[in-house]
């Protein structure tokens, strides 16, 4: 394919491009670079400012999810009890409506590093399909909370089906780069629904076991079962609570199963059970008594916390 080129043609080929064209291209290139650099600069300023706020945030809220048929007020008496043993925890309640909107009551104190937050749902019915929806609604509430209050870690407590919602949320929605869950406590959570025989795995248990590898590896987890008699707490069979080990055991950092009997060990009474309130205070709270401006540090009653 070699073609003989005349010296004229060779000169033509080795000639430099015209200066004007070069300058035009240079201007266009500079404009394009500026079009990337300027928005990039402003984007990065915002991103770094946000990262700084989140990184330096000291807030680690305790977030409660009630069980089926319970509203955002489910934990009122529990939190009253907790606040009677300690001071300085503000209380925020959120209900996620079926159209993804949030209705919010209460507020978080300015210097509160460990507020209590309850997330309830307008549709609080039982059943796997509803629980799946509730997990999604919970993730919406969490996104709102994280944007509003800028925390990067939290502690979770779920009563009854609230524990299932937590498990689904952790497996499907939690972005572990953004948010860390330090501890999780589920109280009377029926991991195998109302099934007594562990050989009969329900759909929800099968799904949770299948996705268990997505659980954060560093959670410390307590699962509390109540028993009125030798088999259940009146509603949830103890075998169903125990089935949680197939999901959490050997997946998370620590899994502890606690069986509570005696007074107030009926399913619905569990959140008010004095023993369980003690566990919450002991295991879940890091700052039982917080210093707030104008409040004297109270180290009196209820300082069973070892931390």
């Amino acid at each position: 394919m070699a073609m003989k080129l005349s010296p004229n043609e060779q000169a033509q080929l080795s000639k430099s491009p015209s200066r004007i064209k070069r300058i035009i291209w240079l201007v266009i290139a500079l404009l394009l670079v500026a079009g990337m650099a300027v928005p990039g600069y402003f984007y990065q300023k915002t991103a770094v400012a946000n990262a700084r706020v989140i990184h330096n945030s000291r807030m680690a809220p305790v977030i409660f999810i009630p069980g089926s048929s319970a509203t955002q007020n489910r934990f009122d008496s529990l939190i009253k009890e907790l606040n009677s043993r300690s001071i300085g925890h503000s209380y925020l309640k959120i209900t996620v409506k079926t159209n993804d909107e949030l209705s919010i009551t209460g507020k978080i104190g300015t210097n509160d590093n460990e507020p209590f937050i309850v997330v309830g749902f307008q549709n609080n019915k039982d059943g796997y399909s509803n629980i799946k929806k509730q997990a999604r609604w919970f993730s919406i509430a969490m996104k709102y909370l994280q944007n509003r209050y800028r925390f990067n870690n939290f502690v979770g407590i779920g009563h009854s089906n609230g524990g299932l919602i937590y498990t689904l949320y952790l497996e499907e929605y939690l972005n572990q780069d953004d948010l860390t869950i330090n501890k999780l406590m589920t109280i009377g959570t029926p991991y195998n629904l109302s099934e007594k025989n562990i050989a009969n795995r329900t759909e929800i248990l099968t799904d949770m076991i299948k996705d268990r590898t997505y659980l954060p590896k560093n959670i410390r987890m307590w699962s509390i079962a109540g028993t009125e008699n030798y088999s259940d707490d009146g509603i949830v069979p103890v075998e169903s609570v125990e089935a949680g080990k197939y999901v959490y055991q050997d997946q998370v950092k620590q899994y502890t199963l606690i069986n509570v009997t005696g007074d107030d060990s009926q399913h619905s009474d569990l959140p008010q059970n004095q023993e369980i309130v003690g566990y919450i205070q002991q295991y879940m709270l890091t700052n039982p008594n917080q210093n707030r401006p104008g409040t004297r540090n109270n180290t009196g009653q209820g300082s069973r916390n070892s931390n």
Partner: peptide
């Protein structure tokens, strides 16, 4: 130091990664 989005043009990566 700061993380920049993936595919950031490399001559801007230093500029943005030091927050401008």
């Amino acid at each position: 130091v700061y993380s920049v989005p993936n595919t950031t043009p490399s001559f801007l990566a230093g500029f943005m990664g030091t927050n401008g």
